[in-house]
Design a binder for these strands. Sequence first.
DNA 1: CTGAAAGCGCTTACAG
DNA 2: CTGAAAGCGCTTACAG
Lengths: 343, 343
Amino acid sequence: MGSVPTLSDVARKAGVSLATVDRVINGRPNVKARTTERVRAAMAELDYRPDPLAAGLARRKRYRFVYLLPVGTNAFMMDLANQIGGMSNWLSSNRASAETVFADVFEPGTLARAIDEIDRAVDGAAIIALDHPEVRAAVDRLVGDGVPVVTLISDAPASRRSRFIGIDNPSAGRSAGALMGRFSGGRTGSVAVLVGSLSLRDHVDRCFGFSQAIEREFPRLKILPVRETRDDRSLAQRETVELLQANDDLVGLYNAGGGNVGVAKAICAINGHNRPVVIAHELTPRSIEALKDGSYDAVLAQNPGHEARSAARILLASANGTSVIEEQERIRIDIFIRENLPA
Amino acid sequence: MGSVPTLSDVARKAGVSLATVDRVINGRPNVKARTTERVRAAMAELDYRPDPLAAGLARRKRYRFVYLLPVGTNAFMMDLANQIGGMSNWLSSNRASAETVFADVFEPGTLARAIDEIDRAVDGAAIIALDHPEVRAAVDRLVGDGVPVVTLISDAPASRRSRFIGIDNPSAGRSAGALMGRFSGGRTGSVAVLVGSLSLRDHVDRCFGFSQAIEREFPRLKILPVRETRDDRSLAQRETVELLQANDDLVGLYNAGGGNVGVAKAICAINGHNRPVVIAHELTPRSIEALKDGSYDAVLAQNPGHEARSAARILLASANGTSVIEEQERIRIDIFIRENLPA
DNA sequence: CTGAAAGCGCTTACAG
DNA sequence: CTGAAAGCGCTTACAG
């Protein structure tokens, strides 16, 4: 009738008990094939859909998830950690909770060890990974031990993680290249590229996309050899200053890594008229300020709140057998200029 | 110990029955002040948090929401309607459902009547509104009848709606202006602006922001008188063609309204080298194609899936007394160029 | 003003 | 291989 069919309706229609229907729905063993079929038929006929909220209540299980983040004071990662904290009410009203652990992500061995140390009793893990055999192996061990894993922001593509939650970095690099070309208004000269490390997949992918876009569409721009900053603000500042001094034809600077505090400081120090076009990554207090005061021209970003929540929704869905709205879990490459900064 | 306190724990600690605790939690009448206090104290001491899922189950109530959208074949609105459909599983697993009704939004009287016709038994309404006294009055009547209302995409600011879910249109216009200025690479000339209608707040707000940005930062660009397309593709095409013919110094075109099918067609028809910089709104099949083939340079967008879900979450929260993650409900102004188009 | 009891739609031992 | 019964954490009449 009007009202939604329940387990009891199915049981009655199939002429079996609640427990049996429960067994077939949840794929538990010990049901005769013919019985299974009768139940399936009844479910289909009634268009029965289990109520995940009631199931959660009855299961009296609470789900525990863990997020593995890099140590350090990186503004973006701190933002991410805050966003995870901000979900705690939502999680607990879904009988779940999240714990955050920190590890040195730059060193594969250390990261692998941190992954190995994750409590095998958790119901899911979101890991900021590294594309490295040791890390992949550690992820695979964790998955092998029955813990669903998603990678966050930085992927370990060949591993057994169920998903990667993050942006398409080559596309982000191409976007940076296209903006660089168009913002530099026809000028000819060189363009500098900074990364945290050339052994970080995401940074390298961004470089790759950037070069591709520049070479194909803006041959008037010449890309200088890439420099590494280790995402360190002082190092980033020093590199930027050197770059500015060594290249009087510098038209643009693309910071594909972290260290915006240092980069912005170096840019701010020079005369407004000679400033290169600067494009960087992630919305942080310093990069926002740089967009506002004109030292940065554009910032490419991924939304850490979205990523944190997406990981939680996906892990929760895999824990309690609910489903996910695919469209909602696609992480976009956000482009920010001064004018569309969030209020 | 470890486990989360429940209603029974509170009842036991306060020395009252479950029903009484329920009364104070949900603010129902008929509880002696002293009893209320005892219960409050017990809740505080145990750090009790009600379980909304269990409450939902016990309440045996299903929530009904209605979305009021404009009639017509507008690609963006169709996308929005699809996104609403795509939430049905999520809604039903939250004991809720959404129904979509269509009305002529361009005509205030008709829209007001459609609002008046909304079933007063629904638990919430999301309305694509219009900033007009008649519409405001109709929204206020609906709210007065006890139906929570959010406005979607287009606001009725002075009304009693609880929120507006959409973008900051003046900022979107400013963003368009900034991109227009930077993408036009120093050229001097005129810039055309198209809107659906000058009596639509969002379109006008975009124009306003656009003019502001151009006049302040790119005085080399002269803005032509705004033209109306009624968001109609043939009209939009005709206006674009005329604009191109009448202004041989045309540097850019900003379409702040709909009708991208017509605009893109007109742009495609002209020689690549003489093309103006074109910036438009919303990701639709045609605008995506135009970005890919180079006839459009940038598209500003709001994410209809995000907006549909945000409305649902907010209405659901107000219906069942749960809370919302504010950060998640902020609708961003997306900037798309060819390179960061979603896959 | 307060409480005992039934029930929401499931799952979980346990008995057979 | 199957079912009866208790229980998850709440709310809702109903009785007092």
